[in-house]
Write a protein that binds this DNA or RNA. Structure first.
Length: 568
RNA sequence: CGGAACGUAGCACAGCCUGGUAGUGCGCCUGCUUUGGGAGCAGGAAGUCGGAGGUUCGAAUCCUCUCGUUCCGACCA
């Protein structure tokens, strides 16, 4: 490809809207342009990278035995109502109406569609195991699209769905996808490590996310350095807080005045001096229109994913001050669960044997001291509700670290939830109908593209891994006069490389050398071969590996072999 | 959806406080020079100052509303 025959609009400066390096480079290297928030046009160089990632994904999926299909993006709401997600996922669903005013959904994912297909097409245990995948555009009404392709409203995802006859068989399918994902990210030149994940609104049980460590990532991962444990912070657990929770009974319950105390912090200071770990933090949520109380230690943070599991519903939110007052008779700052009867109370395990604690008295301006959770709390449901902190010990006894990461893939063992809801049953050997045990496997293709840039760039621009680079070689021609020796040498190198199947971008633009060098580095092509009068006089061309920098003279005759050796 | 900031030429920004001819750099077009690390000179095109209303003799500038963008929190590939 000649540069003058394609379209690579590079930018010297990053547009103000782009904050993180990968987003800036996406724009500066001429890969994409924004149409509106979370909506991007892929330009020629961008689409080349995208196709390469897709090809890797396809190969690994095919290799794992998954079958490619293509499902409609437009979906009938009925199947979403049947699975229960029409309400559950309402906030991300794009809804459209046709000319007859009938409602349709733009698919954010395809469990409902594939399960509907399975309900009629898969009838016998003999058809399992089977796994369908597609690479398709998804739509999600993200409340806040951001960071370019990282969180877009329209994005490309590879989604796969496995159907098995038993839990054990489903684990085999799950493991195949897990292994395939490891391969995909490795081939894309990235370190993506699997971590245990929360299953969230998707339902199901067993789940891993594939995470690319990056300070700009939107997820947080807790892990141990010895590699024995890694989990999404939403899911991570530990042996408990580093500091012990008080457990000595200090006497009878006692109410005391705490005017102006609104926070854990206030109470921790003089004149009260109640350490945060000796306080009980009381949080009120509205779960499916009813109040519920969650208790964690004063210095702990509630983990809403864990709370979701404890509550048994994803439909909950923090209560408003008025709702709290109506439920408990006090405002935030003076809340507690002592004596609460009619509202369900969920307490974190860290508080199970706590004694001598302090908590709000449900009377504005008052707290209770000498609280003994076993004695003073009625009908508590104990659960792990806290977010782990760095330094705590994993179950295996190793200290936890916490790091930000980009989630590029997610594998789930779904169980029978969707199969049951949508009637995807098979006739088993025993002559009875059973629901299929499903798994679903998402991989963000466009997000992966940006994640690769995020972890592979330098001050000059993108540094594409070979496998996904838009072109493998940039042939920089420093004198474009058509009949000149420089151009003729370049053309013959171009012809030979192209004939050998190497993808070459020949920079034949009428611009100064500096511009060509800068641009080739900005768009990040792995190998650059510069042909110019100066080195040609010595019979050489210049050879530069993007990831290494520097330059090396290589005789013209050896240039092609050298490139091929470097790329192999 | 809660909090904050910002919308002026394709891009980056100044001008706004204190109302009075819309600017700078990059990019783009023409010409000349230059030609190995984002060239120089000369000339040129390009802006409903996000939109609507208001105040005023006069609004990019002050006021109100609105739309959009970005950032921080609650959701996810």
């Amino acid at each position: 490809m000649r540069w003058t025959k394609t379209f690579i609009p590079t930018l010297k400066e990053a547009p103000a809207e782009a904050e993180i390096p990968s987003h800036q480079l996406l724009l500066r290297a001429g890969l994409v342009r924004k149409l509106a928030g979370g909506l991007y046009t892929f330009l020629p160089a961008g689409i080349r990278v995208l196709r390469k990632i897709e090809a890797i994904v396809r190969e690994e999926m095919d290799c794992a035995g998954a079958l490619e299909v293509l499902m409609p993006a437009l979906q009938p709401p009925e199947i979403w109502k049947a699975s229960g997600r029409y309400e559950q996922a309402a906030d991300v669903l794009f809804k459209v109406r046709d000319s007859k005013n009938r409602e349709w959904l733009l698919g954010p994912t395809h469990e409902e569609v594939i399960t509907t297909l399975a309900s009629t097409e898969l009838q016998s245990y003999r058809q399992a195991p089977i796994n369908f995948y597609q690479i398709q555009t998804k739509f999600r009404d993200e409340i806040r699209p951001r960071f370019g392709l990282m969180r877009a409203r329209e994005f490309i995802m590879k989604d796969a769905y496995s159907f098995d006859v038993s839990d054990e068989a489903a684990m085999v399918s799950y493991q195949k996808m897990y292994d395939a994902y490891v391969q995909v990210f490795k081939r894309c030149g990235m370190t993506a490590f699997p971590v245990e994940a929360d299953t969230g609104v998707m339902g199901g049980r067993h789940s891993h996310e594939f995470m690319v460590p990056a300070p700009t990532g939107e997820s947080e991962v807790a892990y141990t350095e010895d590699g024995s444990y890694a989990a999404n912070l939403e899911k991570a657990n530990s042996q408990g807080a580093i500091t012990a929770t008080p457990s000595e009974c200090t006497g009878e319950l006692e109410k005391f005045a705490t005017p102006k105390v609104k926070t854990i912090e206030n109470l921790a200071q003089a004149p009260y001096n109640v350490a945060a770990e000796a306080q009980i933090k009381t949080l009120v949520f509205i779960a499916e229109d009813k109040p519920a109380i969650a208790l964690v230690r004063g210095d702990d943070q509630i983990n809403e994913s864990k709370l979701c599991s404890a509550l048994g519903t994803a439909i909950f939110r923090a209560a408003e001050a008025e709702e709290i007052h109506a439920a408990l008779g006090a405002h935030p700052g003076s809340l507690g669960a002592v004596g609460v009867k009619d509202i369900p109370v969920f307490a974190d395990e860290q508080l199970r044997n706590a004694a001598g604690m302090t908590t709000g008295a449900n009377e504005d301006g008052f707290h209770l001291r000498n609280v003994n959770t076993a004695r003073d709390l009625l009908d508590v449901k104990w659960a792990d509700l806290r977010t782990v902190r760095e330094g705590e010990l994993s179950e295996g006894g190793h200290p936890l670290k916490i790091q930000r990461a980009i989630e590029v893939g997610h594998v789930f063992k779904l169980g029978t939830k969707y199969a049951e809801a949508l009637g995807a049953n098979f006739l088993a050997e025993d002559g009875k109908q059973h629901p299929f045990v499903m798994g679903c496997y998402g991989l963000g293709v466009t997000r992966t593209l940006q994640a690769i840039i995020e972890c592979s760039n330098d001050e000059h621009g993108v540094v594409w891994p070979q496998a996904v680079a838009p072109w493998q070689v940039c042939l920089t021609v420093l004198d474009i006069a058509p009949e000149g020796e420089v151009m003729e040498t370049a053309q013959s190198i171009y012809n030979e490389l192209t004939a050998a199947g190497v993808e070459v971008l020949m920079d034949d633009r009428d611009v100064r050398p500096g511009v060509k060098f800068k641009d080739s580095e900005l768009i990040g092509i792995p190998v650059r071969v510069s042909v110019g009068e100066r080195s040609l006089k010595e019979g050489n061309v210049e050879f530069t590996v993007r990831s290494e920098g520097g330059r090396e003279n290589v005789p013209v005759a050896e240039a092609v072999a050298r490139v091929r050796a470097t790329l192999s």
